[in-house]
Nucleic acid binder design. Structure first.
Lengths: 213, 213
DNA sequence: GGAGTAATGTCACCGCGTGTCGATAATCAA
DNA sequence: TTGATTATCGACACGCGGTGACATTACTCC
């Protein structure tokens, strides 16, 4: 929020924004947590942020989009990390490192992260809104696989890898947001290693060690 | 449609249905194909099927749900097939057989299947509506894995397998609906075998043979 | 023919999302 | 200071999706 103002070129034409995407997000997250997603109207979010309903839709295309800001930036991070991976690294190993590196959070941010992810995987309307954002994640991985294997991005195997990686990460996310016992990266690492091991029966052992994060 | 009437107990109390879920589906599929999903109102679908708008929502909870009937029954089929798999079969092999067995279609049904799947993966609103239906598929596989491995259904590895299998199948679906060159099961088989092989670099070869189906 | 039952139709309502247009608040030029 | 420019905001209207309440219709059973 404040960062947006500071990031502003200082001399900018026109009326300055009365709010920010971040401000709307925190207001929405609070209201969703308190009274539920469906029970919260866009009017309430906008009012809580001090703007009109119409202005909310100038910042976000839909009510459900308000919680996806951080996820989208994470996708961009993964894309950048993948581009810098050494070329001799196996594909899944490179993806695993990139995903783990992109999912280190400051301890202060964890509670909000957990609340947001719980909402996103619990509320049906929010889970439905995930499709387009997941697509961007999948394409980031698929494009990387396509470059590595010399295939077009839309061919079968890049698609499979992109979607399977996201699937494993989503499973880790859900498991983590349901339980509070371990660090998020522990679950991500376990899920991606299982994927690289072919999901064979002998690797589908017990849960990862609940090392408090 | 006609089958529904025949399947009816013949002596049934009350007013008979003026339409059926199937009739609404074919009307919707036609209108969506002709003029687009967003450009088609529920009123138009209902009128095309000879009922009122309110009646449409008695058959389907949402406009987008109208195309998911067949998919949901396929999930039930897979669940039943998995329950009858021999216990000594590896998990992924059992899943692969069940998925392939559930995806054999009569040649007459293929054109409609292709149109529906293209819409479901192309139109953003329809892709968003997939979440809840995919969840049922994932849970069918996760429950099977949980039984086999003796873990609770919500633990990490059953979740990973369920989601990864669906991810591979979705990639196969998309690849198939984009190209018309091979049988659907060829793509499904290739995607699931790649998954069982750990998505290793050396198995991420070329596309499967375009054997016309 | 009348009672009971199940599906439908009508109407009203709320909320999301969008287009339009005028108002507002800042910078820049004179 | 004044006026032009520019970007954001607010007010209003509208279509459509989805839902609840209640009357209507059409069929079966007695």
């Amino acid at each position: 929020m404040t960062d947006d103002v500071l990031a502003r070129p200082a001399n900018r034409r026109g009326r300055p924004p009365g709010t920010s995407a971040r401000e709307l997000e925190v207001a929405a997250l609070r209201l969703f947590s308190e009274q539920g997603f469906h029970e919260t109207t866009v009017d309430q979010i906008a009012t809580a942020a001090g703007v009109s309903r119409r202005t909310f839709f100038r910042y976000y295309d839909a009510k459900a989009d308000v919680l996806w800001n951080e996820f989208d930036t994470e996708v961009a991070t993964i894309r950048a990390l993948l581009a810098e991976m050494p070329a001799d690294l196996p594909v899944l190993e490179a993806v695993r490192r990139a995903v783990l590196a992109a999912n280190h959070y400051r301890a202060d941010d964890v509670p909000e992260l957990r609340r947001r992810m719980t909402l996103l995987s619990t509320v049906p309307d929010l889970a439905a809104s995930a499709a387009v954002h997941y697509d961007a994640w999948e394409r980031a991985v698929s494009a990387f696989v396509a470059r590595r294997s010399g295939q077009p991005e839309e061919s079968l195997y890049p698609l499979v890898v992109g979607r399977a990686v996201l699937a494993a990460c989503r499973a880790a996310y859900d498991r983590w947001s349901a339980r509070a016992d371990a660090d998020l990266t522990v679950y991500l690492d376990a899920a991606l290693r299982a994927l690289a091991a072919g999901l064979a029966d002998d690797v589908l052992g017990v849960e990862p060690d609940p090392v408090p994060g």
